[in-house]
C-alpha cells in the first residue's frame, strides 16, 4: 500500500511543479520554429512553453474548434483560416499595447482583407504560390502566365499542389475571376478550364511539390516559393516565375484562441517572436520570408536579394491573398471530386 502511495506521489510531482510555473501552450506547424527560439523565450521570461504541432490547417481548425479554443494559447493558421476562425468567433482580439515589437512588421503584410486592422492576427511568415519550371526542358520565356501551363508540349509533365483551392484558384484567375470567388457559375467555369488541363498534369503532390521536379517526372507546375528555393539549391535549372496575372499569396499568422487560459503569456510569446533576431532565426530555419521588416537588415545579402523569397512589392500588390469561401467550399469540393473521378 505504502509503495503505491509513493508511486502515485512521484507521478503527480511533475504535474504540481508544472501547475506552479506560468506556461504558454503553443500549437504550430511541424518544423516551423527552431528549438533555440523556444528555449530563449523560456530563459528570458521564465514562462514554460508547451509545444505541439499539426500538419494541416484543416486538422488544426477541427481540433481548435472541437475544444472551443480551450487548451491552446497561440496558434498559427494560414490566411483564409484566420478569416474563417475570426468569422466563427474562435479568436480573441489582440491587445496591441502589449506588443512592443509590433513596429518591426512589414506594412505590406498588414491590414489585409482576411483580417482588416490586424485585430485578431499577427503575421508570422509569408510566401507565394506561383510557377516553377525546369530550364533544361522548358524555355524560360515560355513561362510567364498561368495560361502557359495549358501548353500542349507540357503534356503529362506538370506537378500541381494537391489543394483544391489553389488548383481551382488558377482556373478562376485565367478566367478573370478572384481566387476567392463564391459564385457557383464562376467555379464551374474554373472547373471546365482545369479539366482541360488534366492531360498535362502528371502528379498532384500533397507533401512536397519539389520532388517530381527533382525526379524529372515533371518539367513545370505550380509550387510554393520555399519549395522552389530548396529545389533550386539542389538543381539550379529549376526556376520560379511570378505569372503576369498575379501569384497567390499566403501569410501564416499568430492568433490567440478565444478561450485561451494564458492570454498574457500568449501576448508575451507573440511579442518575443516579433523581435528581429528571433525572426531572423526563424527565417533561416523555415526557408520562408519573415513578416518582420527590421529582420531583413540582419540578413545575408544573397538571401535578402533573392526575388524567390522576397518578391518586389509590385508583384505582391498584383497578387491575391486567399480568403475563406464559406459554404462555397462544398461547391469546390464537389468539382474536385468530379475532376478526379473524370465525371
Amino acid at each position: 500500500m505504502k509503495k503505491w502511495m509513493i508511486f502515485i506521489c512521484i507521478l503527480l510531482l511533475p504535474a504540481a511543479v508544472l501547475a506552479a510555473k506560468p506556461s504558454v501552450y503553443v500549437y504550430n506547424w511541424t518544423e516551423y520554429m527552431p528549438d533555440e527560439v523556444l528555449s530563449a523565450f523560456q530563459k528570458e521570461t521564465g514562462i514554460k512553453v508547451v509545444y505541439s504541432t499539426y500538419e494541416s490547417n484543416e486538422s488544426m481548425y477541427a481540433k481548435v474548434k472541437l475544444v472551443k479554443g480551450k487548451g491552446y494559447d497561440v496558434v498559427f493558421p494560414s490566411t483564409y483560416f484566420v478569416h474563417k476562425m475570426r468569422n466563427q468567433g474562435l479568436l480573441a482580439p489582440i491587445d496591441r499595447s502589449k506588443l512592443t515589437n509590433f513596429k518591426h512588421l512589414d506594412p505590406m503584410l498588414l491590414d489585409k482583407p482576411y483580417d482588416p486592422g490586424n485585430r485578431y492576427s499577427i503575421p508570422y511568415v509569408w510566401g507565394s504560390t506561383a510557377l516553377a519550371y525546369n530550364a533544361d526542358h522548358v524555355t524560360p520565356g515560355q513561362m510567364t502566365s498561368w495560361k502557359d501551363l495549358w501548353r500542349p508540349e507540357l503534356k503529362n509533365r506538370l506537378v500541381m499542389n494537391d489543394d483544391l483551392r489553389e488548383v481551382f484558384g488558377i482556373g478562376l484567375i485565367i478566367n478573370g475571376y478572384s481566387v476567392n470567388d463564391t459564385n457557383p457559375d464562376h467555379i464551374r467555369t474554373a472547373f471546365e478550364s482545369v479539366k482541360k488541363l488534366m492531360p498535362n498534369i502528371r502528379v498532384f503532390s500533397g507533401d512536397s511539390p519539389k520532388q517530381p521536379l527533382l525526379n524529372l517526372e515533371a518539367h513545370a507546375g505550380m509550387i510554393w516559393n520555399g519549395e522552389a528555393y530548396m529545389a533550386a539549391e539542389e538543381y539550379p535549372a529549376i526556376r520560379y516565375a511570378y505569372p503576369k496575372e498575379g501569384a497567390i499569396f499566403w501569410v501564416d499568422s499568430m492568433v490567440i484562441p478565444k478561450n485561451a487560459k494564458n492570454k498574457d503569456a500568449a501576448h508575451r510569446f507573440i511579442d518575443f517572436i516579433l523581435k528581429p533576431e528571433m525572426a531572423k532565426l526563424i527565417c533561416e530555419y523555415v526557408g520562408y520570408a519573415p513578416a518582420n521588416r527590421t529582420a531583413l537588415d540582419l540578413m545575408d545579402r544573397s538571401l535578402k536579394d533573392n526575388p524567390m523569397i522576397f518578391p518586389d512589392p509590385s508583384v505582391v500588390k498584383k497578387g491575391e491573398f486567399q480568403m475563406d469561401v464559406g459554404e462555397a467550399i462544398l461547391v469546390y469540393e464537389r468539382y474536385w471530386e468530379r475532376l478526379k473521378t473524370g465525371l
Binding site: 494541416s56 484543416e58 486538422s59 477541427a62 494537391d162 483544391l164 488534366m198 498534369i201 502528371r202 502528379v203 498532384f204 503532390s205 500533397g206 507533401d207 517530381p212 467550399i329 462544398l330 469540393e333 474536385w336 471530386e337 478526379k340 473521378t341 473524370g342
Partner: peptide
C-alpha cells in the same frame, strides 16, 4: 496511390478525409 500514382484519381480514403477536413462535412 497518392504517392506512386500522383493522386490523380480519388479513392475512398481520400474521399472520407476530404469530407472531414476540407468541406467540414
Amino acid at each position: 496511390p497518392d504517392l506512386l500514382g500522383g493522386a490523380k484519381s480519388m479513392l475512398v480514403g481520400n474521399f472520407i478525409k476530404n469530407q472531414f477536413l476540407t468541406s467540414g462535412n
